[in-house]
């Protein structure tokens, strides 16, 4: 938590509503588009509020580097990046410690739903580019990545969607926006599989009592359903 909270963000909930007018369990407006990058095997664009992410899949193709090849299954290679112009302070291009870690958790969030054993020795490259960041970039990137993989025709057990749960002004809230993330108490990125409702991404920082954590999990599970719906609609629209 930053120590210098600007006056307009001192209270994040006013009269039961969040500063952007949302209810506590309400997602930001979400827009999903499929097939935005013609040269990719699969691609998607996802907008969640002001957060905007592009995802592209190249593959399954020959695995590179060769020594990373797996004889039993394909290797999913995820690269998450915030583009230099995605935040108010320019971000230096190239991998950072943060983007390295997010690439890893995003890979883990997605690979359990892919039938990787269908493509032994191959590689699947998934690029997740954040073109504008206003909190929830890893969640939005995972939501976009799942759609891009589905669009590439890669067999999957289900879709994966993600959002960030949080605690603001002591209350649990879904899908934190930028100021809520910066000046709120707790942030919990969360991803779930559409079919069996298993959880594939869970990170948390801040403060949760055991009870709040339990509630946060069930609230996130419920809140995420409309994202699955948007993902499905976008894929169907593309194939119409």
């Amino acid at each position: 938590m930053a120590s210098n909270v600007p006056k307009k963000y001192e209270k994040l909930i006013v009269n039961g509503k969040r500063l952007d007018g949302r209810k506590l369990d309400e997602l930001r407006p979400t827009k999903i588009e499929v097939g935005i990058i013609p040269s990719a095997d699969g691609s998607a664009y996802v907008e969640v509020g002001k957060t905007k992410v592009m995802a592209a899949v190249h593959g399954p193709k020959e695995m590179f580097p060769r020594h990373m090849m797996n004889e039993d299954r394909a290797v999913l290679n995820v690269r998450y990046a915030m583009l230099p112009f995605s935040t108010s302070d320019r971000i230096r291009p190239g991998p950072s410690r943060r983007s390295n870690e997010i690439s890893k958790v995003a890979r883990h969030a997605l690979e359990s739903v892919i039938f990787l054993e269908e493509y032994p020795t191959m590689g699947i490259d998934l690029t997740l580019d954040v073109i504008q960041a206003d909190a929830g970039t890893r969640a939005t990137a995972i939501t976009a990545g799942a759609v891009a993989l589905a669009h590439a025709g890669i067999p999957m057990k289900g879709l994966v969607a993600a959002t960030a749960m949080g605690k603001i002004d002591g209350k649990l809230a879904v899908d934190l926006n930028g100021p809520e993330d910066n000046f709120g108490d707790t942030d919990m990125p969360f991803a779930m599989v559409s079919t069996n409702k298993d959880i594939t991404l869970l990170q948390m920082d801040g403060d949760f009592t055991p009870d709040e954590f339990k509630k946060a999990l069930s609230m996130a599970k419920k809140a995420i359903e409309p994202i699955f719906e948007e993902q499905r609609k976008a894929l169907l629209r593309y194939h119409e």
């Binding site: 890893k104 958790v105 883990h108 594939t200 869970l202 948390m204 403060d207 949760f208």
Partner: peptide, 12 residues
């Protein structure tokens, strides 16, 4: 209370 969490590994 909990202050940090991290799930790792390929499975759900």
């Amino acid at each position: 209370n909990f202050c940090a969490m991290q799930k790792a590994g390929p499975s759900a």
